[in-house]
Design a protein around this nucleic acid. Structure first.
Length: 675
DNA sequence: GGGGGCGACGACG
DNA sequence: TTCCACGTCGTCGCCCCC
């Protein structure tokens, strides 16, 4: 942005203002020939639909910056001194919250995916290599980074930058395995460590430092050595009084290094004074440009000096975040509860406007999403359809239902409605997200029987989890919390298709005995009564559940109607349970009779999870079948849905993107989770 | 007027 | 010659409904 005048100089250099991919913020890219990289990236992108969209975004950002400048200029001296007072007071209040009592360590594995691949294939050593595909790169090793190749860069551009670049496809299983090894090490230093992703973690090492009477630097050194011994992989570490600073520190001596920032206010303030704002987690490309071009803020210290303007132009929470950054403050407590908020799936494909094809894609996504929801035993009531048009424009359309759903039929039904309203359209990506989980409604009066069914599944998970090595988070309610901070890593960047769910490896520990038929894993009495596949026990199953329910607080049955519904549901289930096709058997001891997936005897955990999955799927099918009947009788939703989508149509006509003028809408900037 | 829903979009790995 | 991901979370403005 600041170089937008570049074309007006002696030599036109349009590529200098194209910032899409290249940035030197990444470790290992210091000696890169910046101009060459920018030129190549620009040359390869120019004229493409992607490029045009980037230009639109840039123009939007320029408009925003201009508008904020105007707003700044309008501030009278009186305004400014008033806001300065506000800022000064806020700075004092924030300063009062400073906590220097904890020592946080952030570990970051060096070029993780690439390093793991090199470990498994030593012939790659010393050669420029990238993990990913022609369309997108996940990680590049340091040899490749010297050419400007980096994560999140399309492979075809990377190859242009470095013709001898070797591409290695993503192999998630390997990374998960290595990640597990590193986590075993982390656990020795902080049993409650926070995994931020497969290759990053935050450890509170206050206690271990005290207990062993050694410095944080010594702990960091020892931990890195230990990780190397266990995995053959190097990592970098940063130590600081809070997570925000620890993360910044771990980047300083990357790769294979560490940096210790003492728990001392003066040291923190000195450290932060010259730190570029872009180094802070939560400040990305757009925020950096705005802060620099509107306020002239380049370093964290500048945040404090411009505090008055920040308070004048940003929302309370955003201004607070900026001021905290200026003070070097960050989170120091270890959150025990972090609930997952949503689950989503999205897929990119060759742009098409073929409605049948789009519907097929949607159907596949609904299946995937449903499967993910059922694996986690979740139900959601807000369904969001995400679309990326052939011109890279992103649209989202959402609907909030009165009931909680998770079956692929339900998801597809509502998603189709949302998609239909957008047709005709040429798309290159479709995504589906479910949010507003029933779990969020703890203590809500009518949790309905959907929860009941899910609870069986959850309790199955929870039972297994109670033997998990992650003992510090062992309660039933926590079963999603553990997933939560590991949520991001649940899927591979490029090939998220059919790989086993990562969380499974950490969240669910193995059940002692293997299982050969479905329905065995739920060993508890209630579960056995309900889902025993033996046709003779159907009657028992029904009465068993009703008895269990009526005596259970959890199943708070709101009305007789609810009880009847459940009884009907179980009747349905009894019928289908007698159907031999519904029964999972391991054919020839390795093949699932229901879907054909092959899992040999030794895969005890996997077989168990697989069986759980079929169980969940079946229960949900029964559930949704029953639900449909009920709904048809009651004529629910349809009217409301019609009204809703009509009003949405109206809104959409007015709302589309051309908000060219942008009132200084207090933009975003999340208060970074770890700051 | 407050709260919920929706849509956009930044950020991160 | 073409060719720019996926999953999750957070904030904000606007609209509608109660």
């Amino acid at each position: 942005m600041e170089k937008s005048e570049s074309t007006s100089g002696d030599t036109p250099r349009p590529w200098q203002s194209y910032h899409t991919v290249y940035t030197n913020a990444k470790a290992g890219m210091d000696g890169v020939d910046k101009e060459r990289v920018q030129k190549i990236v620009y040359g390869m992108s120019k004229g493409s639909k992607y490029f045009e969209n980037e230009e639109r975004k840039e123009a939007f950002m320029r408009g925003k910056i201009e508008s904020m400048r105007v707003q700044c200029a309008k501030l009278t001296p009186a305004d400014i001194s008033q806001y300065q007072m506000v800022a000064d007071r806020r700075i004092l209040e924030l300063e009062a919250t400073r906590d220097l009592s904890r020592i946080w360590l952030h570990v970051d594995m060096d070029a993780f995916y690439a390093a793991v691949e090199t470990l498994s294939n030593p012939s790659l050593k010393g050669k420029p290599m990238a993990v990913g595909s022609m369309s997108m790169i996940s990680t590049a090793n340091y040899e490749a980074r010297r050419f400007g190749v980096r994560a999140a860069m399309p492979g075809f551009i990377a190859r242009k930058l470095c013709p001898e670049l070797i591409f290695v496809p993503v192999d998630f299983k390997k990374y998960t395995y290595c990640s597990d090894l590193t986590r075993k090490v982390f656990q020795k230093y902080d049993p409650n460590f926070m995994a931020a992703s497969l290759d990053e973690a935050y450890l509170d090492i206050t206690n271990v430092c005290k207990q062993r009477g050694i410095t944080s630097g010594e702990i960091a050194e020892e931990l890195r050595t230990s990780v190397y011994k266990e995995t053959g992989l190097t990592c970098s570490a940063g130590v600081g009084p809070n997570r925000l600073l620890a993360k910044v520190c771990s980047d300083i001596n990357k790769p294979n290094g560490q940096f210790i920032l003492p728990n001392d206010r003066l040291a923190v303030m000195t450290f932060i004074s010259s730190l570029p704002i872009r180094k802070i987690g939560g400040i990305g490309k757009v925020t950096e440009h705005i802060l620099r071009d509107v306020f002239g803020i380049n370093t964290c210290e500048d945040m404090l000096q411009k505090g008055g303007f920040l308070c004048a132009l940003f929302s309370h929470s955003t201004a607070d975040f900026f001021l905290s950054v200026g003070l070097g403050l960050g989170k120091t407590e270890n959150p025990q509860v972090m609930l997952r908020k949503s689950i989503s799936n999205e897929r990119t494909f060759a742009a098409t406007d073929d409605e049948a094809l789009l519907h097929q894609k949607l159907s596949d996504l609904a299946e995937m999403l449903s499967s993910d929801m059922q694996k986690e035993g979740l139900l959601g009531r807000t369904l969001t359809l995400k679309l990326k048009t052939a011109s890279f424009e992103i649209r989202t359309r959402a609907v909030t239902l009165q009931k909680y759903i998770c079956s692929s039929e339900d998801i597809l039904k509502y998603a189709s409605k949302l998609l239909k309203a957008e047709l005709p359209v040429s798309l290159r990506l479709i995504g589906l997200r479910l949010s507003q989980f029933n779990k969020d409604m703890v203590g809500a009066p009518s949790e309905t029987r959907q929860k009941t069914l899910t609870d069986f599944l959850i309790s199955g998970d929870a039972n297994r989890k109670s033997t998990s090595d992650n003992s510090s988070l062992g309660s039933i309610v926590d079963s999603h919390e553990i997933c939560s901070y590991e949520g991001r890593e649940g899927r591979d960047l490029l090939d998220g298709s059919d790989l086993p769910d990562l969380e499974g490896n950490h969240t669910f520990s193995s059940n002692a005995g293997g299982m050969e038929k479905i329905y065995e894993p739920l060993k508890n009495e209630t579960a056995n009564k309900v889902i025993a596949p033996d046709p003779k026990s159907h009657q028992n199953a029904v009465t068993g559940l009703l008895e269990a329910d009526s005596s259970s607080v959890e199943f708070a049955c709101s009305s007789l109607d609810e009880v009847n519904k459940r009884a009907n549901l179980l009747d349905d289930e009894a019928v289908s349970s007698s159907n031999q096709e519904e029964l999972l058997l391991w054919v020839n001891d390795y093949k699932c009779s229901l879907c054909g997936i092959e899992l040999p005897l030794g895969f005890v955990e996997e077989r168990q999870e697989h069986s759980d999955f079929h169980l969940a799927e079946r229960l949900q099918k029964e559930e949704s079948r029953h639900e449909t009947k009920t709904l048809m009788l009651r004529h629910r939703f349809s009217l409301k849905e019609n009204i809703r989508s009509q009003s949405k149509r109206k809104k959409q006509k007015i709302s589309p993107k051309d908000k060219g003028h942008i009132p200084i809408d207090m933009f975003f900037v999340k208060s970074f989770q770890n700051f």
